[in-house]
Computed example of a mutant assay.
Amino acid sequence: MKPQSMLFTIYGEYVRRYGGEIWVGSLTRLLGEFGMSEQAVRVAISRMVSQGWLKARKIGNRSYYSMTARGKKRLNEAAARIYKDLPAKWDGKWCIITYNIPEKRRGIRDQLRKELGWMGFGMLANSVWISPHDLVERVKEIAENYEITDCVEIFTADYKGIDDPQQLVEKCWNLDEINQAYAGFIERYQPQYEELRRQVERCEPISDSECFVKKTELVHEYRKFLFIDPSLPDELLPDFWVGRDADRLFRNYYALLDPGAVRFFLSVFESAPDKE
């Protein structure tokens, strides 16, 4: 686990729920639970500040860090997908993005591709990406931020092709590969969940710090699916979709660990003594 990636998990899972701002000493203590040194954490924080994810506020001799508007938006998007805060029924519409970005702006083009991949778009053809979710406004915002509005076109359309929608999906996403990744997640965490469930049934204690470590690692690993799983509607998923079982396991294991994990976080968490 890399400190910067873990910081995203800590902010997304805990800090955003308790005011959004935290003392740097609390961060180093929390990440120290995963064997990360204070220096490594501070370096990661500095990088996130320079990349525009975090902002600092100094009070006396203490520094407090919160997510920037850009960072908050990313965390909200991640939470919506992790906890399946998506429309229950698909309206059959596709969001289609095309772009023609000059070679001299290749760096911007690469960044746009990363953003589209993060949001769950799949590449149908060179410079043509599709998603079954309404992401028009989000793409507009990204295009404006990168100053490429004149290079990007956005459409919302029905699919009228010869293939059925599932075959269209197969052209854009490797669902077999995603299924295998979910199977690996279940293989790793099912035994841990069963053991903890038995401990609870036997009334055997588990420390809050252990709950914090286990729950944070669980969320951290599950968050990786944001980069490979486009969160397709049920109508577009194959009958045998391991993601459903993985989601059920995640939620059950999360529920057992959450109370103790939150207690430990709050015992370490220190926010600024005042607000701007």
Rank of each mutant, 00 (worst) to 15 (best):
W53D: 14
R248K: 15
M123T: 01
Q192Y: 12
A79V: 11
D164E: 12
R81S: 01
T68V: 05
K171E: 06
A40F: 05
N145P: 09
G161H: 04
F212L: 05
V169S: 08
R138L: 12
W94S: 08
Y254F: 14
I108W: 10
I22D: 04
A79K: 11
E153F: 14
C95Y: 01
N61M: 11
V169I: 04
D110M: 11
W129M: 00
E137R: 13
S26M: 09
E141W: 09
E147W: 13
F8C: 10
V268N: 03
E147A: 15
L75D: 08
A143N: 07
K140T: 02
L257M: 00
N61Q: 13
D163P: 02
E187C: 05
E103P: 09
E177K: 14
G260T: 03
Q39H: 13
E13R: 12
G260R: 05
F225W: 07
N179K: 02
W94H: 07
Y253Q: 07
N61C: 04
Q4D: 13
R113S: 03
L135R: 05
E103W: 10
G161C: 05
R62G: 04
R70F: 12
S131Y: 03
L232R: 03
F34I: 05
S50K: 15
R29K: 15
Y83V: 08
V15G: 03
G12D: 01
R81E: 01
L54D: 00
P259V: 00
D245V: 11
C95E: 00
K58I: 08
E201N: 13
W118N: 13
V262L: 11
W90G: 05
K84M: 13
A44Y: 08
Y14Q: 02
A183I: 06
T28S: 09
K55S: 14
L168V: 05
E235Y: 06
E270P: 00
K114P: 03
G60Y: 02
F212W: 04
Y11I: 05
R81L: 04
